[in-house]
């Protein structure tokens, strides 16, 4: 089994279940830039149009997790853990009306982990 690039906490998984009950299948795209940049954005699957430069990093709790190639350049050595906190991020992410915000926590891969990490593939 390769080392995964993304994972999810139990608390975030429970929020994903709540959102899936309401909205159906979901997807995540990691934002960049100002305000709510570098935050995992949760959308109904297919809502966000994935482009030729988006990458698929793996699944979290049954949802595809994607990132733009420009941003992935700096995530090659990072394991990304999707967690959830109380708060009110802006953006169109689905959890915000619940008074919750997904956020990422990070583990920098060791050399051994990097040798066996899951390869990324184009989103489409």
């Amino acid at each position: 089994m390769p080392v995964e690039r993304v994972s999810v906490t139990q608390a975030a998984s429970e929020v994903i279940d709540r959102l899936r009950d309401e909205h159906g299948e979901l997807m995540f795209h990691l934002s960049g830039g100002c305000c709510d940049g570098s935050s995992p954005m949760c959308y109904p699957a297919g809502e966000f149009r994935l482009g030729g430069r988006d990458l698929y990093l793996g699944d979290i709790h049954g949802c595809g997790f994607y990132m733009h190639a420009d941003q992935f350049e700096y995530y090659k050595n990072s394991h990304t853990i999707v967690d959830v906190v109380e708060g009110r991020g802006a953006s169109f992410s689905l959890e915000i009306p619940l008074g919750l915000r997904f956020l990422i926590r990070t583990h920098i891969f060791s050399d051994e982990e990097l040798a066996d990490v899951r390869p990324v593939v184009a989103a489409n």
Binding site: S31, G32, G33, D36, Y43, F48
Partner: peptide, 13 residues
């Protein structure tokens, strides 16, 4: 719009 890139792309979409 002013904000981050994912919402920016949705806005443009």
């Amino acid at each position: 719009f002013t904000g981050e890139t994912s919402t920016g792309r949705l806005i443009m979409q």
